[in-house]
Structures are given as structure tokens and as C-alpha cells.
């Protein structure tokens, strides 16, 4: 598999480290314990598009949000995680 890092271009998967589901969001500090339990442990296992976090660990150290089809490993988009996170924050504020 190859991942198109937004900073480094198309690179072999062995440069990247997989982290997990990018669709879960860390709860606010005052959230209930159950919200944190869900955040830490509960994951969907979709057959199809999956947004997930990867780190370009042997490259630029960027965290990435990769949208990958779990059935075919076809990668739809690769975004810088920070951009996704900032967009999420500004959405929440507006």
C-alpha cells in the first residue's frame, strides 16, 4: 500500500504507523466517565470507507487522516490531521 502524504508525496506504507479510528473525538474535560470509556474503547468496524489516523513516523512526523476502503484498501483521501482538527474546532465554535 502507498499513502500520499500531503507534505512528502506518495510513499510506501512501511514509512507510516497506523493508530486507529479518526472519527472518535476526545470528550471535553468535564464530560462523563462513560463518554471517555466510549472514546477509548468503542469502535465501529465498517466494511467500506473508514477514516483513520496514521503517522508518517519515518517521514515528516505528520499525523494524517486517511480515508480507506477496508474491503479493497483503496485510499480515497489523505488529509493533514491538524487541518482536519482545526476545521472541526472552528465548526464547533460557529
Amino acid at each position: 500500500m502507498r499513502i500520499a502524504c500531503p507534505h512528502c508525496g506518495l510513499r510506501g506504507v512501511d514509512e507510516f504507523a497506523y493508530f486507529g479510528d479518526a472519527s472518535v473525538t476526545r470528550p471535553a474535560a468535564d464530560a462523563a466517565e462513560t463518554a471517555f470509556a466510549d472514546y477509548v474503547y468503542l469502535r465501529d468496524n465498517p466494511a467500506g470507507a473508514h477514516r483513520e489516523l496514521w503517522s508518517h513516523a519515518l517521514g515528516c512526523q505528520s499525523w494524517l487522516v486517511v480515508t480507506r476502503d477496508t474491503r479493497s484498501h483503496a485510499i480515497e483521501t489523505v488529509e493533514a490531521a491538524r487541518d482536519v482538527a482545526l476545521a472541526r474546532t472552528s465548526e464547533a465554535q460557529s
Binding site: 493508530f19 512526523q61 491538524r82 482538527a85
Partner: peptide
């Protein structure tokens, strides 16, 4: 060492990008 570095980047880039 490497794991902590990656963890800090995760916090900075993903959890608290601001």
C-alpha cells in the same frame, strides 16, 4: 523515546491543534 515523541505530536496535531 520514539513513542513519546509521536504521542506529543499526536496531542499537538490532532487533539489540540490550536
Amino acid at each position: 523515546a520514539a513513542g513519546v515523541m509521536r504521542h506529543l505530536e499526536f496531542c499537538k496535531q490532532w487533539l489540540w491543534p490550536e
